[in-house]
Amino acid sequence: MTPVLDVKKLRMDFGGLRAVNDVDLHINEKEIIALIGPNGAGKTTFFNCITGVNKPTAGDVIICPPGATHTKRINGLKPNVITEKGLARTFQNIRLFQNMTVLENVMIGRHTRMHAGIAGAILRNKKTREEEQKVIDDSYEILKKLNLEQFVNELAKNLPYGAQRRLEIARAMATDPFLLLLDEPAAGMNPQETHELVDTINKIRDNENITILLIEHDMGLVMTLSERIYVVDYGKLIASGAPDDIKKDPEVIKAYLGEDTNA
C-alpha cells in the first residue's frame, strides 16, 4: 500500500542552522503517528515544511490521498494549495481568528471546498445560496462532533481554553483533510481534558477516516494513542518504531535525559 504521506530526506536550513536534517517519515492510511523529541529538535519546522509555511531546502514531500491513483510531490507549494490537497494542521499556540465567531472560524475552513466566486457572492443566485447554506450546515455538524455546538455564536476569544483547542481541530477538519497534523494538541490541558482529547482523536480517525500525525510532549498520550513513533533530536531522526520499542531505545533515553544518566 502506498503511504498517504511519504517524506524523503527532508532538509531545512535557516542560514547556517540545519533545523531538519534528512528526515524520512511515512504514514499509512488511518494510522496515528507521533513525532516526539526534546524542545528545539525541529518538530514544528518539520510540520512547517510539510504544510508549506516554510519551503524545504531539499528532499521530497509526497502525498497519495486515499483513493488517488498516483502520488504527488507537494514541497514548495503555497500553504493554501497544500490545504486544498487535503492536509490540515493546528499550531502549538492557539491561532484562532479571535474576533470571529466559532461558526465563522469553521466556515472559513469550509469555504475551501466551495466554488462560488465573487460574481456569485454579488448576484446571490440560487446555487450560491444553496452552497452557503451547505457550508453553514456542514460547519455546524463539525462543531457537534467536537462538542462545541453550545458556543456556536460566541467569539472565539471568549471560549474556555479547552474549547479553543477543540475549535482549532474543528477548523482544521472543516477543510476536509485526509491527513491532520496536530502540533501539541494537549499543551496546557488538565488530565481530564487530555483524556477526552485521546477519545476525540481516536474518533476522528475511526469515524472520519482521517490519518493523524501529531507532535506531543505528554508521553502518556503519545504512548496510548500512537501506533508508531518517530523521534527527532537536533533535526535528525534518531529512532522510529512501536511505542514499546521507543521506550527502551538507548538513543531516545539519551536524548531525553542527557549523556550521563548515573548522576
Partner: peptide
Amino acid sequence: VMAQLVGI
C-alpha cells in the same frame, strides 16, 4: 499564515 493554512 493561518489564513493560508485554512485554504485562503
